[in-house]
Write a protein that binds this DNA or RNA. Sequence first.
RNA 1: GCCCCCUUCGUCUAUCGGCUAGGACAUCAGGUUCUCAUCCUGGUAAGAGCGGUUCGAUUCCGCUAGGGGGUGCCA
Length: 435
Amino acid sequence: MSEIRVRFAPSPTGQVHIGNIRAAIFNWLYARHVGGKFLLRVEDIDLERSTPEAIKALLDVMQWLRLDYDEPEVYQTHNVARHLACAEALLASGHAYKAEKATKDGKTGEVVIFRMPKEGILSYDDLVKGHMEKKAADTQDFVIVRSDGSPVFHLANVVDDLDQGITHVIRGDDHVENTFKHLALFRALGAEPPRYGHLPMIVNAQGKPYSKRDGAAFVGEFRDQGYLPDALFNYLLLLGWNPGDDREVLTRDEMVDLFTLEACHSSPAKFDIKKLTWMNGEYIRRAPAAEFEAELRRRVAAAGLTIPEGFDVPFLVQQLQVRTKFWGDIPGNCAYFFTDDYEFDQKAVEKRLSGPEVPALLEDLANRFEALEPWTAAAGEEMVKQLSQGNGMGPWVHPIRVAVSGRMEGPGLFEMLQLLGREKTVARLRRAARR
RNA sequence: GCCCCCUUCGUCUAUCGGCUAGGACAUCAGGUUCUCAUCCUGGUAAGAGCGGUUCGAUUCCGCUAGGGGGUGCCA
């Protein structure tokens, strides 16, 4: 049995759309599952729309999502001579003919047109949609070489698939109708066509194709917003596929192991950013502490902040990891540990620090913390508990929190103070008392 | 217009004729608690409609409706 070869063949005309990259993901998983080859073909014959920037963005995204391919990427522009030679062959064999045809802006020129079968039923078995058929009479001949001599998508796409030995074409639903054309082209070229499978579209809340106006639609945007590649990968996979049981968060190995085209759906799926966000948090929470720490250090440093000597980073990680939904939350959610110039949330100040009793309270607490032994979260909590006499620590805890961090939410207060250290805690309490 | 495809909770989905229709996200209520988050418990919520086949249909078939795709010298 010959090797299974699949490909991802995007046009580099802009950023990479999530619907597009999902096709790449499914192709990649299929190839890995069956032990075949996954290839990348850059369909850059498209006029002026293909740009070097777009190609770079594409390659970056492939790498970011760990979609490795098994042979160097192929550029469609490098194969134009072959496309045209095939058109000649088709002309010679009578499968194509030349004709004068008008463009939509009124100019006419001679093009090469492929002859579709005129009688009978055209059919094929779609890898995900099942048996498909269409009356030949319902299809039309189509242009394969433009009047300027350039090959049209259908020709280039088919010839490249042929040349690359593609055995399974897994692509978006919008290509279903093209499949009848492509099949005919393959046969006219005297070649055995690949199997085809069509993935349903990703749609918005209204059921229309998901686009830019519906929110982030490009892979790069998700990356910029702090989504993890593995979370996006996992979420996109769940749109139209499931492992057959209740598992949702899967490792790459599990995905490869369980993936089949038979389990893919044929109905469109709505993109739900909330579930993606949940999954992202899930991936951050499940990340090894060391990985979280590395990311934390990187982001704190990138913000120009310095982690003090002796700072208990692992303890901070423990406090922060469960509260982080996006990498982008860092360092905003912990900057106050590393600078005295942290921001005060105005609402928090009004709510917790504006009372007439607050200055005296904070001064008193500053004195008590100054004398607290040992400097641990447990000791601090014990002390405040004494003060509250079992009536709830809120009246003490809230002002302290805002005074030392500027915000109303965050790690447990006493853990926060332990991390911050006695000196800073006391100084900040006094500063807030005297403002 | 014509051709093709799709249709289970708000969303992603399980079910391959036996269903008290399960899970997850979201949402609501409660628990834990110094906040937020996590975590735990519980609730609301679905088979587009109509016919048929069958002892029995969410599951099979047909029709209708709704939605999507295609119908380019775009890809």
